[in-house]
Write a protein that binds this DNA or RNA. Structure first.
Lengths: 327, 327
DNA sequence: ACTTAATGTGGTATCGATACCATAGATCTT
DNA sequence: AAGATCTATGGTATCGATACCACATTAAGT
């Protein structure tokens, strides 16, 4: 492998001069610069990243910890992150936890000495992880979950839930079911649920226990939830609010199996604006969270922090209701 | 930041001994080991990855270049890659080209000095890129495209296309349309098309020009293709083979708009076994390429190569037809 | 013309780890 | 009992880059 030393020898200058050319720093004569650049061109020399990092304490790499890249939310966020980071010469080191909380901790430790900053697409806010996060001596931004003393880019899950619930009510629905997820996921599990119940209560509408289901994050789980709701309820709801599109689509597939029509027999809403949502039949009413922007914003704030510039500690992003035929 | 030197001082041993403890190499007395481990525990010391890399010439990082992570094929492959790589302590550096061929070249250069190996989820096999690839002094594996002298993990696109075409014919279809992509994508564009035409010819079935469309990789493009086929054909086909599920689903959405029934008015097949495919109405007949296995296999072969073990230069993976109601 | 500043270049220490060698004492051979 | 071998440890060079300083040389300022 060709090193800076070789380039220096071949161009008849010192390593220092080559380094100056490489980094466009200090004084270099046109003549010397040209010679060095030619040699670099000829040899296809690329500086060693780790040698550079060792000296400069900068890796130009951002670690991204996420639960999966198989669903649209994280993959969109990563796309946004990548787009913004690459503009500034940063790269992404991917740490996929596969929904394993242990690994989240492991990766945090592992990344510490390899990256300049960390983006955490979080799924839970348990104390153990929160403590670990606060102990990380590195700029870190959490996406999707709000926590004290940590940089966060979040969505307004509570008001989204209220708004979409209000929309169902406005459409005339009085008996509304709810398909949620575990509340250890504070944003998706707790806040969306709270928004739903608060809005229902504000309209003096009761929510029967039989109409409420807790799922994991997959389509089949939504299918089962709808089955449970229908089989268990004495008086059935006329609409169901599912906290993710995938759950709503699972629910819809069960309705279809039973020969029930959406929205006539049962209206449905989801959250996420997944690609699926517009191609199911009928197209699903949902909320666009603009995940790519979230990624871009997170990257911007993180880079600002790294570069010692001013940055926003908390950022709550905008959203957009997408009204389609499922209601 | 605490370094190996600090640990050595605190544990009253030399840096060499700490290094031996860290790497479980050479001789270390129980006593010394315990002292070192305690200090490491207390301080939360993590060795500097780049210092280590500089000395050992190993980064334990694999670069992954892909066109997007927003579609299921690459994201599944990356999941498989990650799963296998993390078992061996390797991490993934993600390079998203956003379908930009220029960036593919750039990233190849950029990664050279930062990773131990490269995985390329390729979309085209143009000479420029192929030459670059062959010049890379690093183990590299291509996924999804076959090329000479390069490690490849591929699918048997040609036979898949023949088989699924044969299936349509066996179901009684004689007039079959085709929605493909640009042939610079050799696997998806060229091989699948060739398989389709060869199988049709083997059955002495003609394919009218009006039934053939070339798309880009998105759902809307499939929608437009179906529109074109229907509007242009004098005698319309009774089935259409789309080379990806997304194209098929786009086509299906156009049929639905026009009040046409699948499969009665028009049968449809795709390739890819996307999650969407089972939740559209009717569920789509498609082919499962087991992308996660492809990722895992690619990782295994790449690691074998890196470790100087024996590895397979070419690997053609299995597939599975999934018969659903769209035919 | 003589100080001061700007330009250009090279030498050396250093980042934080590992590799490799030297050394010393304990244990084993024969 | 002398040499060989095993165990345990430390010292030093090194990986490939940058930082920083020292020193020329040239240009500018008064």
């Amino acid at each position: 492998m060709v090193t800076i030393k070789d380039i220096a020898a071949m161009a008849n200058v010192s390593r220092s001069t080559v380094s100056r050319v490489l980094n466009n720093s200090g004084y270099v004569s046109e003549e010397a610069r040209k010679r060095v650049e030619e040699v670099i061109e000829q040899t296809g020399y690329v500086p060693s990243g780790y040698a550079k990092s060792l000296r400069t304490k900068q890796t130009k790499v951002i670690g991204v910890i996420l639960p999966t890249i198989q669903t649209e939310t994280p993959s969109r966020v990563v796309t946004g992150l990548g787009r913004e980071l690459s503009k500034h010469g940063y790269q992404i080191l991917l740490a996929n936890t596969d929904h394993d909380k242990e690994k989240e901790l492991e990766y945090l430790d592992l990344l510490i000495r390899q990256v300049d900053g960390i983006v955490l697409i979080a799924t839970n806010t348990e104390p153990e992880i929160m403590e670990k996060i606060k102990s990380i001596p590195l700029p870190l931004v959490m996406i999707g979950q709000e926590t004290e003393k940590v940089m966060c880019v979040t969505y307004d899950d509570y008001h989204v839930a209220r708004e979409i619930t209000a929309f169902l009510i406005q459409k005339g629905h009085r008996r509304i079911g709810f398909i949620g997820v575990d509340e250890t996921d504070r944003a998706v599990g707790y806040m969306r649920k709270k928004g739903f119940f608060d809005e229902m209560q504000a309209h003096h509408l009761a929510v029967e226990e039989a109409w409420v289901e807790k799922c994991v994050f997959d389509i089949y789980s939504g299918h089962e939830a709808m089955k449970n709701i229908l089989n268990r309820s004495i008086q059935q709801p006329t609409a169901v609010f599912a906290v993710t599109d995938r759950l709503a689509i699972g629910a819809m597939s069960y309705l279809k199996e039973q020969g029930l029509e959406t929205p006539q027999d049962m209206a449905l809403v989801g959250i996420g604006a997944s690609e699926l949502s517009q191609y199911v039949d009928p197209p699903l009413t949902t909320v666009d969270y603009k995940n790519e922007s979230a990624g871009e914003e997170a990257a911007k704030q993180l880079l600002a922090h790294i570069q010692g510039k001013e940055y926003q500690k908390k950022l709550v992003l905008d959203y957009r209701l997408i009204l389609r035929d499922s209601v």
